[in-house]
């Protein structure tokens, strides 16, 4: 774990990590009696409409929203569970392990679908498929790949165009990237072949979806693999240049999850927020926000999300992780 800390520090580009956040914002600062501290991996822009609605309905509650990477959430939370009331992350495996290890408070009265909650403690509130996002300019006049196999073929066909212009998560840094990669590897060997092809094209590795989409938009890279489509869609200026492809061969769908810290001093307020979060994200009427809703199916096709079950802990095992990372490195970082 120790080297993970180092990686996180590098990613944040800071030395005093405890006080540094990607973003920190306080909602309803003025006249609130209680303040909920939420540690989250979701960009503030995406989450703000939801929190605004919540504080509008509950004027006596203020929310301090802290954003950092998924791996960092896991680290900080394990170190100081009493410092946060709610943890929100897209890394389902890390979240599930935190709950399994007893950091979460079970909530009695949150009605939720059985497949979208675990131990009545961990609640999923979005369904977000991993997408291939391309810059249309790079595929001008060409067929746009609809699956991983077609992407492999497209990359092989024009290596000169794509050299140093493909990107994906650095799974060593990003918890979400690691989750997507391990689930892909479980599903099909195609993943490893794609990684080898991308490795051969001097792939660029990113810590976060945001950076990847920035580079895609300005044309630094032409293809990004396993990006969150929701992030790309949320950027209005990217709409014309980018195309989001949900691979047709097999989907990898993540659910954002939230839980209340067992060490919280405001269990009722925290539970109230979770109740609101779940209902806001479950009903299309309420959900006027930017986050994708929680849904079992997407576009009519069967897109079951990664299951919330103890098996998520498999790839978090130290031996298993080492093995996976060494395979990943040997495929992607070809020296």
């Amino acid at each position: 774990m120790r080297y993970l800390i180092v990686l996180v520090l590098v990613c944040l580009g800071s030395t005093g990590w405890a006080q540094n956040w990607e973003d920190r914002q306080v909602f309803n600062d003025t006249d609130a009696a209680t303040t909920l501290r939420i540690i989250s991996s979701t960009d503030t822009d995406l989450f703000a409409p939801l929190i605004d609605t919540f504080v509008a309905r509950n004027p006596d509650i203020a929310i301090e929203y802290l954003v950092t990477g998924t791996a960092d959430i896991d680290l900080r939370f394990r170190n100081t569970p009493e410092a946060f009331d709610i943890a929100i992350s897209s890394a389902m495996d890390l979240q599930l392990k935190l709950v399994n290890d007893g950091y979460a408070l079970p909530l009695e009265n949150v009605a939720h679908l059985p497949w979208a909650e675990w131990r009545q403690s961990l609640f999923a509130f979005t369904s977000e498929p991993a997408a291939i996002v391309i810059n249309r300019a790079a595929f001008d006049g060409m067929a746009i790949p609809q699956s991983r196999q077609e992407l492999i073929e497209a990359l092989r066909a024009r290596p000169d165009v794509f050299r140093n212009r493909v990107g994906t998560y650095d799974v060593r840094q990003s918890g979400l990237g690691y989750l997507f990669a391990t689930q892909d590897a479980r599903a099909s060997e195609t993943f490893w072949r794609l990684m080898e092809v991308m490795g051969g094209l001097d792939v660029r590795l990113y810590c976060c979806s945001g950076d990847m989409i920035d580079d895609l938009t300005d044309g630094t890279i032409a293809v990004a693999y396993n990006v969150l489509g929701s992030y790309a869609e949320a950027r209005a200026e990217s709409q014309s240049t980018l195309e989001i492809i949900l691979p047709s061969d097999f989907p990898t769908t993540m659910m954002r999850t939230a839980f209340v810290s067992r060490a919280t001093k405001k269990p009722q307020t925290a539970a109230q927020f979770i109740q609101f979060l779940v209902s806001y994200q479950s009903s299309p009427v309420d959900g006027a926000g930017l986050l994708p809703l929680l849904s079992e199916k997407e576009n009519g096709a069967e897109r079951r999300a990664i299951a919330l079950e103890p098996a998520l802990m498999t790839f978090l095992d130290r031996l298993k992780r080492n093995k996976f990372l060494s395979e990943w490195e040997s495929a992607l970082i070809q020296k």
Binding site: R186, E309, P310, A311, L312, T314, L319, K323
Partner: peptide
């Protein structure tokens, strides 16, 4: 060196309707 490639099914089969917690040590 010991390598232990945990099968995904090993924990998957321990999933229960009550979402029981699982702990292991190697």
């Amino acid at each position: 060196r010991i390598e232990l490639d945990l099968p995904y099914a090993a924990f998957s089969m321990l999933a229960t309707p009550a979402d029981d917690r699982v702990f292991y040590a190697i």
